[in-house]
C-alpha cells in the first residue's frame, strides 16, 4: 500500500496511507463544524484537499491568478530581533520590500505591547517616518493590546488570574473592565502618533490573548481610531479560534464576545470599523497535518463567507494548519497556503 509523507502538528515527519489521510480530513472537518456550528466542507472540497496534501513536489503553489496579498505581525522586527541581524528596523522594511517581495510590512518593537510602546513612542515614530520616506509598500505599526500587562505588579489593576481561582468573580470582572479602559487609551494614543508619522495602518495584533476583555479592547480602540483618523487602516488580528471567556459577560454591539469563533469574530471586527481581519485557527500538535488543515480550512471558509471585509489568515508557527515548530516546514506551509486560498477563499495571509 503506498504511503504519503506528511507531518504531525509538532512538525515531525510521518507517512500515512490515502485512507488514513481521508479519514483525518473528515475528522478535522467534523471537529470544526461541531465546535463552530458551521457547515462541513463539501465532498468535492475534501477531495481537493486530499489532492493538495498528497501532491508530488516538496512545495506547491496556487493556480495562476489566485495569488493573494499578505500582511505581517511584527514583520520588520523579526529580522532585527529574532534573527539577530544588526539592522535598523526601517532598513528591515526595505529588505522586506526589495529583497523578499513583501506586499506590506509592519514595524513592531521587541516589547510588543501597546502599553510598553507608549513609553517609547517618541523613539518609534522616527523609525516609521524614515521607513515611509523610503518604502513603496504599505507600512503599518503593530503591537498587542496585551491586557495582562495592566495587572499588578506590572500595572494599576488587580490581577484577575489570581482573583479567579479564589472565586472572586466580581472583583476579577471589575479588574478586566478597568484594564480595557487603560488599554484602549494606550492603543488610540500610539495609533495617533503613528498616523502623524505617516503610517498606512495600525495592526492590533493578537486581540483576545488575555480573553474576551482583551478582544473588546481591540474593538473599542478601533472605533476610536477610526473616529479620529478615518484614513488610517486598521487590521485586527485574533489570538485564537475562539475568544476565551476570562470575563464571560462582556458584549459588543449586543453580542457576547466570549466563545465567538472566527465567522462571528469578523462581524464584530467589521462593526468596529476595521479594514482587515486576521483569522486564527490553532494547530493541535498531537494531530496530523491533514486533520489540522482540514479543520482550519473549514473555519476559514465559514469566516470568509460571513465577512464583508478582507480576511487574512494567520499562517505561522502553531496556527493556520502550520506545525508548531520554529522553522515551519515548507511542504506544510505551501500546502496550507494553497488550501486556505483555493478552498477557504482567503483574501490574504
Amino acid at each position: 500500500m503506498s504511503e504519503f509523507f506528511t507531518r504531525m502538528g509538532d512538525g515531525s515527519g510521518i507517512y500515512m496511507t490515502a485512507a488514513e489521510i481521508r479519514e483525518d480530513i473528515l475528522k478535522g472537518v467534523k471537529e470544526a463544524a461541531d465546535h463552530g456550528k458551521i457547515p462541513d466542507l463539501t465532498q468535492e472540497e475534501m477531495d481537493y484537499l486530499f489532492d493538495i496534501i498528497t501532491m508530488p513536489g516538496n512545495i506547491v503553489g496556487v493556480e495562476r491568478g489566485r495569488e493573494v496579498v499578505s500582511t505581517s505581525d511584527s514583520g520588520s522586527c523579526k529580522m532585527t530581533y529574532h534573527a539577530n541581524i544588526a539592522m535598523e528596523r526601517s532598513m528591515a522594511v526595505m529588505v522586506s520590500e526589495k529583497v523578499l517581495g513583501a506586499d506590506s510590512i509592519d514595524i513592531g518593537n521587541m516589547d510588543y505591547s501597546y502599553k510598553a510602546v507608549k513609553q517609547i513612542v517618541h523613539n518609534e515614530t522616527p523609525v516609521m517616518e524614515l521607513a515611509q520616506l523610503n518604502a513603496v509598500i504599505p507600512v503599518l505599526y503593530g503591537s498587542m493590546p496585551n491586557l495582562g500587562l495592566y495587572t499588578k505588579p506590572d500595572g494599576p489593576v488587580e490581577n484577575w488570574s489570581e482573583l479567579l481561582p479564589l472565586a472572586k468573580i466580581d472583583e476579577a470582572c471589575a479588574a478586566q473592565e478597568e484594564a480595557v479602559e487603560h488599554a484602549v487609551r494606550d492603543m488610540v494614543f500610539v495609533a495617533g502618533e503613528m498616523y502623524e508619522a505617516g503610517a498606512d495602518g495600525i495592526n492590533l495584533d493578537t486581540c483576545g490573548a488575555s480573553g474576551d476583555a482583551d478582544f473588546l479592547a481591540g474593538l473599542l480602540a478601533t472605533e476610536k481610531i477610526k473616529e479620529k483618523y478615518p484614513d488610517l487602516g486598521v487590521e485586527i488580528g485574533a489570538a485564537g479560534e475562539f475568544v476565551l471567556g476570562m470575563h464571560g459577560k462582556l458584549e459588543y454591539d449586543g453580542t457576547r464576545i466570549a466563545g465567538l469563533y472566527p465567522h462571528k469574530q469578523v462581524k464584530l471586527t467589521e462593526k468596529a470599523g476595521a479594514n482587515i481581519f486576521g483569522a486564527v485557527v490553532n494547530t493541535n500538535t498531537n494531530k496530523t497535518f491533514p486533520w489540522n488543515i482540514a479543520r482550519t480550512v473549514t473555519f476559514v471558509k465559514a469566516c470568509v463567507e460571513a465577512a464583508e471585509i478582507p480576511v487574512h489568515v494567520n499562517v505561522g508557527m502553531g496556527v493556520g494548519g502550520i506545525s508548531m515548530s520554529e522553522i515551519p516546514p515548507i511542504d506544510v506551509v505551501t500546502r496550507a497556503d494553497k488550501a486556505l486560498i483555493e478552498i477557504g477563499k482567503a483574501d490574504g495571509l
Binding site: 481561582p165 472565586a167 476570562m246 466570549a258 466563545g259
Partner: peptide, 15 residues
C-alpha cells in the same frame, strides 16, 4: 474547551 462556558463558570463549578 469549546468556548461554550467561560472561566467564571469553570471556577464556580470547580468550587
Amino acid at each position: 474547551s469549546r468556548g461554550e462556558i467561560f472561566m467564571p463558570e469553570l471556577i464556580l463549578s470547580a468550587q
